[in-house]
Amino acid sequence: MSYQRYDYDVIANWIEPGERVLDLGCGDGSLLRHLSTVRQVRGYGVENDPERIVACARNGINVIQIDMEQGLAGFDDGFFDHVIMSLSLQAMRNTQGILAEMLRVGREAVVSFPNFAYWRHRQAILNGRMPVSKNLPYQWYDTPNVRFFTIADFDALCEQEGIVIHERLAFDEDKVIVDEPNFLASVALYRLGRAEG
């Protein structure tokens, strides 16, 4: 939980009061609830899990049930100030597609993901086992994650796709990691934008 609060605070700091925010893979809506409390955002969540839809409704969060893998058809270009995907990108098959969609419907995108090159994960692999940790809490046979990538991988993808990295923060638990993030950080958060022109 302490990690999650930290994630929320970083995201809140990147958002101006009253913005329109879209949270992709919004879970039970707790991030949007947090953002509407501290930033008075006009928030909408996207989910496709039936139980989470009910949880959002119970939480009083605007939630829209669609399959994100199909993209965000129906969402107008540039309607949102920020489109967030918190710890869900690794569970998406169409990585490039969803990143493009986020930056189509949003002025900026906020993405966080577990760093598979985190030293503890490397150690687990060296010991011959797939990593299982706080941020990767699943066994290899039941994980919802389908894309396994690192901070260095993501930086390279942004470069390749012409996505501008406005800010990047890396963490080990709730500790900011400045040096060697691809080795020492378990999670990274990015604030992304479209290339000009």
Partner: peptide, 21 residues
């Protein structure tokens, strides 16, 4: 139904949408 949902969202209305299997 999604047409209604997106139009409401783009009108800044609070809206939730469930697609029941």
């Amino acid at each position: 139904s999604r047409e209604i949902v997106y139009a409401l969202m783009h009108s800044d209305r609070r809206v939730s949408y469930a697609e029941i299997d």
